[in-house]
């Protein structure tokens, strides 16, 4: 397998505007408008979200018990996250604490969801950029191109493990995409001993596959100096913002439950709150050129689309989760932290 292609064929353009429509290899609609100055450098760029479906409005009037099925349709790549988030809100509405078994099932379901979603992201959406390289021909920059580069046997492993993760979710949730399992204070069905055994075998295989994936990332990206020169260049891929993530009582990463921790760009904790209190900390600004609203950390306030400590802009991403926490609760993940 040859290395990623990191430099472009040089082309000249007389246009002072570059339109990327649509942005690709992620869920959702988006476009980017880039404006160039007289010397051909980027003067400004706008990332626009051209869609709105209006869930906020049409959820009003629905049976509250149905909302976790409705809101999962916010995103079909991470429906499990929306389903569980809404289910937890239902627990609150009904003031019903789920029994330990239900919580374990939810955590298992969500772990499987994570495996599916991260395999899909890593291999199907992002891998083209690091395996083939950001400057590889556009027609090859996709999952089929990636399979072409890594070989069909590796491709088959990717497919198999994502499929395992989908299977676990389907058994627990009825459907992997748009599950129906969450109920106020509980879950819709139990798993059998036979199913548990199958899950265990699939999970073990997924752990091995995760190690394999770490190796790919280390070999293709972390050991590639040319690549690191690009991604570690503070002039290109760098913004200092606030960071938000969910942590447990020991400040370790938790995916299912915990408190929200916000840190400033220097790493100091500036807020810690329970989910219900979010309106005290988060607000949404509106700009006329995007349907997407712009969330910011309320105590600092909206100061425009600028980074830094004086601006309320924050990240709530896998990266910010790593930034806010003191590590993982499982040994293999902790070893990579």
């Amino acid at each position: 397998m040859s290395g990623p292609i990191l430099s472009d064929e040089k082309t000249t353009s007389t246009s002072k505007r570059i339109t990327i429509d649509p942005i690709t290899r992620l869920e959702g609609h988006g476009k980017i408008e880039i404006f160039l100055d007289d010397s051909g450098n980027v003067a400004n760029a706008y990332w626009q979200v051209p869609e709105l479906r209006g869930f906020e409005a049409f959820c009003i009037g629905r049976s509250v018990e149905d909302l976790n099925k409705i809101t999962s349709r916010l995103c079909g790549v991470c429906p499990g996250a929306h389903h569980l988030c809404s289910t937890k809100a239902l627990d609150g509405v009904f003031n019903a604490t789920p029994p330990p078994t239900a919580i374990k099932l939810r955590e298992l379901f969500y772990a499987a969801h994570y495996v599916h979603s991260h395999i899909a992201h890593f291999y199907a959406l992002a891998a083209a950029d690091f395996v083939l390289g950001p400057c590889a021909p556009a027609a090859t920059r996709n999952i089929l191109g990636v399979v072409g580069a890594v070989g069909v046997p590796v491709g088959a492993e990717v497919i198999k493990h994502r499929s395992y993760a989908q299977k676990v979710q389907e058994v627990i949730g009825g459907k992997a995409t748009h599950p129906v399992c969450g109920l106020p204070g509980g879950m819709a069905r139990v798993i059998t001993e036979d199913e548990r055994k199958k899950f265990e075998a699939m999970s073990k295989s997924c752990v091995e596959f995760a190690k394999f994936t770490q190796d790919i990332f280390a070999n293709v990206v972390l050991k590639n100096k040319d690549y690191l020169d690009i991604i570690l260049n503070k002039d290109i891929y760098y913004q200092e913002t606030y960071n938000l993530g969910t942590v447990d009582k020991n400040d370790k990463i938790n995916f299912y439950d915990g408190t929200q921790k916000m840190i400033d760009p220097d790493g100091n904790e500036v807020a810690r709150y329970k989910d219900k209190e979010y309106t005290k900390y988060i607000a949404e600004h509106v700009l006329p050129w995007s349907y997407e609203k712009f969330c910011y950390f309320k105590p600092v306030g909206w100061k425009g689309l600028v980074a830094g400590k004086d601006s309320g802009i924050y990240r709530a991403t896998p990266l910010s989760r790593l930034n806010v926490s003191k590590g993982f609760t499982t040994p293999l993940a902790q070893a990579e932290y």
């Binding site: 959702g28 349709r73 995103c75 079909g76 899909a120 999952i143 499929s163 992997a176 995409t177």
Partner: peptide, 12 residues
């Protein structure tokens, strides 16, 4: 929502 796109990947 993108779920239909994921469904095409689900044919493994």
């Amino acid at each position: 929502c993108g779920g239909c796109d994921v469904a095409l990947l689900d044919i493994d």
